[in-house]
Design a protein around this nucleic acid. Structure first.
Lengths: 299, 299
DNA sequence: CGTTGTTGATAGGGATTGGCTATCATCTGG
DNA sequence: CCAGATGATAGCCAATCCCTATCAACAACG
């Protein structure tokens, strides 16, 4: 069995297209095709459903896919481990973060890249569920997400931030004199919020429910930028994580108000998978997060 | 990088000898030598300290060794996963067990092989510490060991047995009429016990300590067979796990007595590593252990 | 209904490399 | 000084990995 063939296989599973997968692997399409045939021959199983075009993976193919990712992840770990001893860490640090934590990636990236000049960080905005899967599948080296909500399958974490909420409205829409708002009145307003698949939304829903309220926001988006744009129209109000609000606090048309009753803050932090030989990327991420934690300056 | 080269590398690390490692891999010695050179060239690092003979691994070599084992373990998982779907599980189930649990491997093996006719089980007697390392390094598919003592790095376990203690003496040495013994008097006798690196010995030491006693056994061995042989001489007495005693209860010269006060029983069971895609071997082991647990017949 | 673009498989050739046997260089022990 | 052990080197062969060029089947569309 060839490692390269496993790369072809995972690429095809990802791209769902022979030519694109080949290009992603930097080889020609016939090469990828032949490599996959060889892999199927090695295992004695058809892994790919094809009907003159890519259909999907067979049952066997789906069964071995996570294993192929494990193999390749371990190979990455091996190469990094060998490279890390003599010189600095090199390559791409693949960080996934929930949208609410995006304001933290600046400080984290600063710490990480200061400690590892050879690294390049790539940030991927993902839901907490996707981060969990991506960590298990070695798609990401680390994630920044909620620490207390996860079923947490074998992860190490470093808390970075405690999330608070801020009410957001456009100036001149009746809130200018206010110093705070309460949850009950907000529930009655024209809210725009994230969609229900996203963790921050679920947390808010639970917060409203804890107050005996339920919300049916007339506008739903999948990014804070969209929410901000909706608020700017003056038609809507929304709720931001404080870290996110800080990032855009310079906007003169935008008004942020605290709530009268803050729920228990949600811890947000860095998570990496806790495998036996810890990958140098994971280690570097933990070190950077710990440095950040000591300084106390996050966001 | 070639998977085969990683096999060469782990074999060499295990055998500490080029020719033996080559033979273990089923290739000629120059082939292995060249393969290792290629691996070193790939990584750009010397991995092996050589001085006309094998000296040891370099720092880099030691760093990548656990990763190489991860890679190969994942490859095994992949192969098994692909094979397991259609037909029965094949190959070798590598079980490690502490000596005190060796009497359990019969029932476990029976259950495992009944459920998986294509499997062959190989049993390795190891200390609990070695089992822990071997599981992490993919040297074993499962272990049978104490469940409550482990620091437990990501393992799944199924309890199989609760260990009790029996006093063992040769008949005709003054114990024939007795129905039980107490810890204090045993502490005064000429005991032979396992050496202190072994878990069962440490458990006994703690048991004695809990009774305010301390023992300095005049004979120490690393196997129960040796202990039994020492007891047979009539000069010594010892303490066996009840499961072990059952196994040799047919010996007419041998006398087993319970203790008056039993400490809390120690749970012994099957452990497998809890990785994200669970290996079919681990799964098969768990299933066999669970079947055994339901039947309640272990040992 | 024919044309065109897309998608994946096949054919053939060249370069790489993994493997073998045979041999050598060096060290160890007697 | 000789014999054995250990690992590296040389030279050769076969496998295979990858490429370009091409083909076959299908879909979309005028």
């Amino acid at each position: 069995m060839q490692l390269q063939h496993l790369r072809y296989f995972t690429a095809l599973a990802r791209e769902r297209h022979f030519a694109r997968a080949a290009s992603a692997c930097g080889v020609s399409q016939p090469t990828l095709s032949a490599g996959l045939s060889a892999l199927e021959h090695d295992l004695g199983k058809r892994l790919i459903e094809r009907d003159r075009r890519f259909i999907g993976l067979t049952e066997e193919g789906a069964a071995i896919l996570p294993w192929a990712e494990q193999v390749l992840g371990a190979v990455r770990g091996l190469t990094h481990a060998s490279a890390a001893l003599s010189v600095e860490l090199q390559g791409e640090f693949r960080l996934a973060a929930i949208p609410a934590a995006l304001p933290l990636v600046g400080a984290f990236g600063e710490a990480l890249l200061a400690q590892n000049r050879g690294l390049a960080m790539s940030v991927h905005s993902q839901t907490s569920r996707e981060i969990e899967r991506g960590l298990a599948a070695n798609t990401f080296d680390a994630g920044i997400t909620y620490l207390d909500h996860e079923p947490a399958g074998n992860v190490l974490s470093v808390p970075l931030h405690e999330e608070q909420y801020l009410f957001v409205a456009r100036r001149g829409t009746g809130f200018d004199g206010r110093t705070c708002v309460d949850w009950a009145e907000v529930a009655e307003m024209r809210l725009c919020l994230l969609h229900q698949g996203m963790q921050f939304r679920r947390i808010l829903d639970r917060q409203f429910a804890d107050c005996g309220l339920s919300v049916m926001p007339p506008a739903i988006a999948d990014s804070y930028v969209s929410l901000l744009s909706l608020v700017r129209s003056g038609e809507f109000v929304t709720i931001f994580p404080a870290a996110y609000a800080d990032l855009v606090s310079g906007l003169d048309w935008c008004l942020f108000l605290p709530f009268d009753a803050e729920p228990a803050p949600r811890r947000i932090g860095l998570v990496v998978v806790d495998r036996d030989p810890m990958g140098p990327m994971a280690r570097a991420g933990l070190l950077a997060a710990q440095a950040l934690q000591r300084v106390g300056k996050v966001g």
